[in-house]
């Protein structure tokens, strides 16, 4: 094989505008579902018409948590579970940004569960993409809050006896204003949902069921990535607008997918601004002026005064 044929691989790759190609190859295993979601995310951003400079991505820790490191946006790889509060600070400090949280099930709903429910409650204007592979992959296949009942994990070696979260139900119950679920088989639908979520104002949540081939699939003797996709093909059922109380996932059972919630509600910042505008009137201005702005204003004023003096 001519090695030079691939010399321009990085530049020529259709994803090169979107990924930090100098960081390739990535760490994800063959058959892993995360890459599909990242690609779908890239497509969504392209189609959304958003200025890439005004989109930031925040991840926590874990396999999906590595996404922020590969995406060529302002990107933050934070601590385990804390992507949402970091993203909250980012959004509130710089409201013109579109802030996306991209992380896994363990990160977002285990260690970070408290932040998840409160960001949803506040209708914080964030787009949260959760790649749910039922597994703590980075640490070697432990049980997570979403692992189906009876599934095997390294810390439930005789099968999972806990009840899992149904994430769309959780998000909906907490106040999320956009909720969708897909599997990694539904690449185009994921992309369409992310695009819709990016253009939605408020807390939007997209769960993507994806295979962890190395750990979850293998430990449960479910075959490889292709077998997972086959399972999704056979057992995923598209039911838009279904009551989120009905979307539980049993071990290797049916997976209800689709857009479940899409409603308009003022965001946290809308409420802050509206409220203080009411209380303080025209005086109110979030963040006022920056130092350079104040300095420019003072300079202009001084010049105007000097000019006026000169005229006299």
């Amino acid at each position: 094989m001519n090695v030079n044929a691939n010399a321009n691989f990085a530049q020529d790759n259709p994803m090169s505008q979107f990924l930090r190609m100098e960081r390739m190859p990535h760490i994800w295993c063959p058959g892993c579902g995360i890459g599909i979601v990242v690609t779908a995310f890239a497509e969504a951003i392209k189609k959304s018409g958003l200025d890439l400079d005004k989109v930031a991505i925040v991840s926590g820790i874990g396999c999906t948590g590595r996404t922020a490191g590969y995406v060529k946006l302002d990107s933050f790889h934070s601590t385990h579970g804390r992507a949402i509060p970091l993203a909250t600070g980012l959004k509130l400090a710089n409201p013109e940004m579109k802030v996306v949280v991209f992380s896994g099930d363990g990160d977002l709903t285990g260690i970070g569960g408290n932040h998840f429910i409160h960001a949803a409650r506040r209708n914080m204007d964030l787009t949260v993409v959760c790649v749910n592979n039922f597994t703590y992959g980075m640490t070697g296949g432990q049980v997570t809050p979403t692992t189906p009942h009876t599934a095997n994990a390294s810390t439930t070696p005789f099968g999972n006896y806990e009840y899992p979260f149904s994430l769309p139900f959780l998000a909906d119950a907490c106040g999320a204003t956009y909720v969708a679920r897909w599997t990694s088989l539904h690449a185009r639908q994921i992309s369409a949902s992310i695009k819709e979520a990016l253009n939605h104002r408020g807390f939007s949540f997209i769960e993507v069921i994806a295979p962890c081939t190395t750990l979850y699939q293998r430990r449960n003797r479910l075959g490889d990535g292709l077998d997972a996709l086959e399972y999704y093909q056979n057992d995923a059922e598209i039911v838009h607008d279904i009551d989120t109380r009905l979307v539980d996932i049993d071990y290797q059972g049916k997976i209800k997918v689709g857009k479940f919630v899409h409603k308009e509600k003022p965001t946290y910042l809308d409420n802050v601004n509206q409220h203080y505008a009411n209380v303080l009137g025209d005086e109110y201005q979030l963040y006022g002026k920056t130092t350079p702005e104040r300095e420019a204003e003072a300079k202009a004023k001084a010049e105007a005064e000097a000019a006026a003096k000169g005229a006299v």
């Binding site: 934070s78 909250t88 400090a93």
Partner: peptide, 13 residues
């Protein structure tokens, strides 16, 4: 935990 995480976001904001 959320408070200090928000500060990191706020500072880079």
């Amino acid at each position: 935990i959320a408070s200090i995480a928000a500060l990191i976001g706020g500072a880079w904001g």
